[in-house]
Design a protein around this nucleic acid. Structure first.
Lengths: 202, 202
DNA sequence: ACGGCGTTCTTAACAGTGTCAAGATTATGC
DNA sequence: GCATAATCTTGACACTGTTAAGAACGCCGT
């Protein structure tokens, strides 16, 4: 039974077989190849080999499709930094560098994931769940041990610093030469977090 | 002489009189009223009372118009934080708070200003000049005295932290309750910058 | 086995978009 | 005062998201 003909994009009769995931993958591919501007519902449908209105059998609209694409992005980000987060030999800075490399490798996807609610539904259950998972990995490293991650200023500051850096670099607000000084910049937050952690201890 | 008929949007013959700035102001108004999604070239032209293709006499395309709108945004931001930057009694955190309040008051404009190159031309001369001016005000407070602002990790870290915080809040990646703890979060960077500044001194 | 039924997909259409070409209208410089 | 350049309008093209109507298919109960 390895030659199962229904799992992939094989069955191409009138019914596609697994259009939903095929559309999401087409979206990811277009995002990398053509950039965010080249992603239209119709282009995604073309890429998946179906007709313009076919996606509406699986998604309520473009926002819902793009939310699914962004959700996959957060899962990938989580899988990338999970091993680093659980490795005690790694610092917050190491996590940040890996994070930034993900963003630079998938700029369109990253922009979509953290972009405005015009293109994704940030209240989508799957999406916010996936983004929370990725964030909690950061929090494990940057946070006080006992506190809830979402209430702790330490992890939030770390995430904000890394995210802001990525965005300013991507949109050419700061010179690209700063790429080489990223670890140095990230380290500027460490004394503040250490101080804060000390205060927070019982 | 108060009824000067040429300065504002008054002269409405065949020729508008000052369409260029009227279009930019219409763009700003639409951005606040309808959000970024409601801003189309045609809607801007309608709002200014001209026809759909009229903007092409003043802008090469939508990107150029939006770049002009974003440039106005950076000028406003500069004017807002300039007095704080030159006041020695104000800290970096005070600047950051004012910055964040600007973003929260004009979310659509802020998103446009720092958004992707699909909607604005980040290499536009006027635009990058205006954004640099705003940044240098931040750098005056956060930077080492002697160094060029753009090469100094301190100001860049400060800007990144503030910008990332704003973005994550706007796009609902972190809970809105964090709004009240903004000064606390911004303060986490201060020990790192102080340390860095000390190292940098001669 | 087979017939109905709900899901999936297609074609066609609508309103809206950015952009360009041609032409009408007006201001401006000689 | 008139030619010329700048400004604005109308009309069109290709594209977008979305919906309606119906065709093709898989499945489930009999």
């Amino acid at each position: 039974m390895p030659g199962s003909t229904k799992s992939k994009t094989q069955a191409r009769g009138y019914h596609h077989g697994d259009l939903r995931t095929a559309l999401v993958e087409a979206g990811l591919a277009l995002l990398e190849r053509e950039g965010a501007a080249g992603v239209s519902l119709r282009a995604v449908a073309r890429q998946a080999g179906v007709s313009q209105a076919a996606p509406y059998a699986h998604f309520a609209g473009k926002r819902e499709l793009m939310s699914a694409v962004a959700t996959v992005g957060f899962s990938r980000l989580r899988d990338l930094i999970a091993p680093l987060a659980s490795d005690p030999a790694r610092s917050v800075g190491d996590l940040g560098v890996a994070y930034i490399e993900f963003a630079k490798a998938n700029p369109g996807l990253y922009t979509l994931m953290f972009g405005s609610g015009d293109y994704i539904d940030s209240r989508d259950v799957q999406l916010s769940h996936a983004s929370r998972q990725a964030f909690e990995l950061l929090a494990m490293k940057a946070g006080r041990k006992g506190s809830n991650a979402v209430d702790d200023p330490g992890p939030i500051a770390a995430w904000s610093l890394v995210h802001g850096l990525v965005m300013l670099l991507m949109n050419e607000k700061i010179p690209p030469e700063m790429n080489e000084r990223l670890p140095e910049i990230l380290r500027l937050l460490e004394p503040g977090i250490a101080e804060h952690t000390r205060e927070g201890e019982v």
